[in-house]
Nucleic acid binder design. Structure first.
Ligand code: FES
Ligand code: FES
Lengths: 142, 142
DNA sequence: TTAAATTGCTATGCCTGGGTAGCAATTATG
DNA sequence: CATAATTGCTACCCAGGCATAGCAATTTAA
């Protein structure tokens, strides 16, 4: 009923990196700053790195930084890299051909919200995001 | 990002039963009518039965019928019996204190939709549902 | 009486999201 | 050089949603 934790973690990490640009941050540092389980954070970072959203720097004093400028990273790409943006194209009720003739009782509320979220994801970059919200100190679910 | 299949199955079964009230329907009959995998349908029905939403009748020609009058079964009870209605109280981004001060970028779209869905769930009975939608022949996801 | 159809119940399996752990390779520091 | 800190990578574990299969008990039909 909401984004996966992996997506949430990724958005947090990338937003944090955007806020402190040009700084190389290690997994252990990010772990301390964002309260994301270390081992899992490692695998999330590896994944984001493989997908080009961040760039890994090996060796002592190594770490990660944004793979592109923050004004060129759209939130939709992040969601796509984790759970895939298709989650938003599914009918809330599990129907196959939802958006068309097959209208359930939740249909209107669901599609309206879906369109709004999609619009936000596709038109907000990390740079925009910095100006609109403040998620520096996380209180993410455990 | 949407209701579980179990919830969807349950809503379908109960809506179908409401439409044909006072008729005892076996699992295999419902399976044929609603295209829900037989074995899984069995366990869903057992669960709904244990929770009192439907009533099981044993023996040949046995089956299930609504546990209460259709005007006394609210959709929220059904969702509660399957995945729990709490899914709707979480921040879409994984924040802890969503509805209060901690506002993420999706907050407005998310809470608006959430309130609408909750309102529908808590104020719609199976009887109301019959008058508003038609989900008799399902094309549910496999 | 025997067989068929049914629910009640339990055990099992698969897949995915979330999470842990460890090892090799790389780089900086003492 | 030796050690510490780091990423890259892989293997593994666990829980829950989804699904299958089978057995016992009950009831009806032939
Ligand atoms: S038919 Fe898909 S949300 Fe209603
Ligand atoms: S703070 Fe995220 S949806 Fe409310």
């Amino acid at each position: 009923m909401n984004f996966t934790k992996t997506t949430s973690y990724s958005l947090h990490v990338l937003a944090y990196m955007a806020r402190h640009e040009n700084k190389i941050m290690s997994a252990s540092y990010l772990h301390r700053q964002l309260d994301i389980p270390y081992s899992y954070l490692r695998s999330v970072l590896l994944d984001l790195s493989r997908k080009g959203l961040i760039m890994g720097v090996k060796g002592r004093n190594g770490g990660f930084c944004l793979g592109r400028e923050k004004k060129d990273i759209y939130l939709s790409e992040i969601v796509n890299a984790t759970e895939g943006i298709d989650v938003l194209n599914k009918c809330i009720m599990g129907y196959e051909k939802c958006p068309f003739d097959n209208v359930c009782i939740f249909h209107s509320a669901w599609t309206r919200m879906r369109d709004e979220i999609l619009d936000i994801l596709e038109n907000t970059t990390l740079a925009d995001h910095l100006n609109s919200t403040d998620i520096s100190k996380s209180n993410i679910n455990q």
